[in-house]
Design a protein around this nucleic acid. Structure first.
Lengths: 218, 218
DNA sequence: GCCAAAACGGACCATGGTCCGATTTCATTC
DNA sequence: GAATGAAATCGGACCATGGTCCGTTTTGGC
């Protein structure tokens, strides 16, 4: 099974744009404006502070004010950088999601490319389930509230599955089938199953594999 | 197609316990305590006020304070009766959900009993989709926030599907298969499909039917 | 060193939710 | 059928937290 870590070290938030290199006088069109140094410093401080708070006191203790204080920053700054509490959580999530996407897109088989499509698909589920479960709280807080923004990881996963289905040669409404395949991994459902019904991870995986086999067979 | 109305008339909230009839001196064990008359009056007033506010100004305008004012009641009362904003929405939802459950359990075929199990299952999806879509806002606001309580309608739907699968003679992990079949009707997913991807209801239904056929065939 | 643009940060607002003294209800008693 | 009192209910003041606003400070190209 492919491994990837969601919480690596301490300095795991890197500036997106290294500010040490000389900046172009005229920013190219469509290029995001370079992040000012204080802004970058604060962004990182905020993310690290949030991570620290979650690890120490649980996600419910993460109030925006607490984050601001812990990061030695004003409340307004937190909101300017991350829009909302939801946005802050999403930013934190991005980190492990990116790692996972990397494994899917560029990692070794069976998950990564160069593998049999069906094998890839069957490896995809457990892998996705693992990341999802280990980030349940974060995902819930990153999607709850206001219209439940379309979560990029979800979109990515569905597109990827759709692609695999196509390679496998499945026929039908692929986007919808892909959605159906990923649907059992929705937060609400997983929470119900794991926290209420006491379904084990192994069983969820087995069930999912069975589901895929039923959908794919011709 | 079976029809049922979610918003019938004006006086559609009835007291659970008619208080006109003489009350037993000693309440039977396990029987819920009789609702005091003022309590009943207020409960109904609150529900009707909420409905009115939603219809008039949209669900986002429904603040607990606004509800209290509209119902001529104190804010504390609203919270005592419905626990939370979420609870209030859930109570409102219950109304149309009950009607739907009635249609499923006691209505005419193909949805109700006395039908071929597979027919029932295939009728179940579109029916469920219809109720869900016409209550999207309510459902979202009734489940969002705090740990996303296990929504009774969801539990009911899954159990029912599980039962139908059994009657059809499908073999495998029925609870999980049932969950998988209902999963594409999760709020988040439907919102993404209808509001972002522009998928039509007809297409969702077609896709769902296809899904069920793939799962059920042996 | 200058200056415009960007970022900062804390006071302020809105709303969900809690609390507790005042009020209402209703079975019992006379 | 009026008085009584305990239990339930009421309701608004109060609190916590997400989110906004805008005057002040910092940044970094010139």
């Amino acid at each position: 099974m492919v491994r990837f870590h969601s919480r690596s070290g301490q300095n795991f938030f890197r500036t997106v744009t290294p500010v040490t290199e000389k900046r172009r006088s005229l920013p190219l069109l469509g290029e995001p404006p370079v992040e000012r140094r204080d802004a970058a410093r604060n962004r990182i401080a905020i993310l690290e502070a949030t991570r620290r708070l979650i690890d120490r006191d649980g996600i419910d203790a993460v109030t925006m004010e607490a984050v601001a204080t812990e990061a030695n920053v004003g409340k307004g700054t937190v909101f300017r950088r991350f829009e909302s509490r939801q946005g802050l959580m999403a930013a934190l999530l991005d980190h492990s999601e990116m790692a996972w996407q990397g494994a899917v897109l560029f990692g070794p088989p069976p998950l990564g490319p160069d593998g049999d499509p069906l094998e890839r698909l069957l490896a995809f589920g457990p892998s996705r389930l693992e990341t999802t479960l280990s980030n349940l709280d974060l995902i819930r807080h990153a999607t709850a509230g206001r219209g439940g923004r379309s979560r990029p990881p979800y979109v990515f996963a569905v597109m990827h599955v759709r692609h695999l289905l196509q390679e496998i040669g499945v026929r039908g409404d692929l986007p919808l089938l892909a959605t159906a395949i990923m649907a059992p991994f929705e937060v609400h459902i997983l929470e119900q199953q794991t926290r209420v019904d006491g379904v084990t991870t192994a069983r969820i995986n087995a069930g999912w594999t069975d589901l895929v086999r039923r959908i794919v067979r011709d």
